[in-house]
């Protein structure tokens, strides 16, 4: 076997995966998006732009997603960073593993069960009842966009914590000493050294969470009470309820295009922020 043949052999599984799991479904969606809905649902081949023309009917779903996904990403980042920082920089190494495991533990339980816990916590006899005790009355939390935001941040926090943790943990602690030695106070050191050097982790975490949030449907369905409608929910309805595969494909394809554009712009921005640095990898 020549080297070239061996290389092909090594690449084949990845290529097959890429074709079967990515290219094929995307092609199907693309083709379907120009079709029509059958009389009893499903898909009838056609070539029409009707489905794309109908996109404004899901404008609110796109709007909600495009507002809450970035907002959720930023909120998760703001909470994850101090947590990751504490774990990576301040924690005694012998506790690190235990604390890291604690961060993942929630992942061992289905998101469904965890969201149910939140339904109870945010429901009338949960947090609002506690707030009432301290005199804050009439707070409605469950089935609001805020509840969805909480669910999102809670559900995706580990995905954000880990990349940031890794970038902070990998950070050469002597750089922090060097900064202090050169006269920078701790907060200046954080701003000038720690933060810039952890940007790759932050970028990776944000990317992961953002992409997943763009397709999220379970948390809005459970914690938004059906009133916070994401593109993901629109897709579930289109494919499983009204069985309008053509329109569903158009919505899905539009979502993918929006995602690709956003992610590309984002990566460009991050790359510019770190012009020329080779040790930054986003994906």
């Amino acid at each position: 076997m020549t080297r070239r043949e061996r290389n092909w052999l090594l690449v084949t599984p990845a290529a097959a995966w890429f074709v079967v799991m990515l290219v094929l479904p995307l092609s199907v969606i693309f083709v379907f998006s120009f079709g029509e809905r059958g009389p009893a649902g499903g898909y009838v081949p056609a070539f029409t732009f009707e489905q794309y023309a109908n996109l404004p009917a899901r404008f609110t779903a796109f709007k909600n997603t495009m507002i809450l996904a970035p907002l959720g990403t930023i909120a998760a980042m703001l909470i994850a960073y101090p947590l990751a920082y504490q774990l990576a920089v301040r924690t005694d190494p012998k506790w690190k593993i235990i604390l890291l495991v604690l961060v993942i533990v929630p992942f061992w339980t289905s998101i469904l069960i965890r969201s149910y816990a939140w339904i109870f916590i945010l429901g009338g006899s949960g947090l609002p009842a506690l707030l009432e005790m301290v005199g804050i009355e009439g707070v409605r939390l469950i089935y609001t966009p805020f509840a969805v935001l909480i669910g999102i941040v809670y559900g995706y926090l580990p995905l954000m914590v880990f990349p940031i943790y890794v970038s902070l943990d990998r950070l050469d602690k002597r750089l922090l000493e060097a900064s202090a030695d050169l006269g920078a106070r701790p907060f200046s050191t954080f701003l000038q050294v720690t933060l810039p050097l952890s940007i790759p982790g932050v970028a990776t975490g944000c990317m992961l969470v953002f992409i997943l949030l763009m397709g999220e449907f379970l948390i809005p369905a459970l914690l938004g009470g059906g009133k916070v409608f994401f593109v993901g929910n629109a897709l579930v309805d289109l494919f499983l309820q009204s069985r309008n595969w053509a329109f569903g494909s158009a919505v899905a394809f539009t979502l993918i295009v929006i995602m690709l554009v956003t992610v590309t712009v984002y990566m460009r921005l991050i790359a510019r922020l770190h012009s020329g640095r080779q040790d930054i990898s986003i994906m």
Binding site: A57, R58, F59, G226, F229, A234, D237, Q241, S242, N244
Partner: peptide, 12 residues
Amino acid sequence: PNRAELLARFKS
């Protein structure tokens, strides 16, 4: 299909 669309409009 109109009823399905109606519900989607209502939800969003």
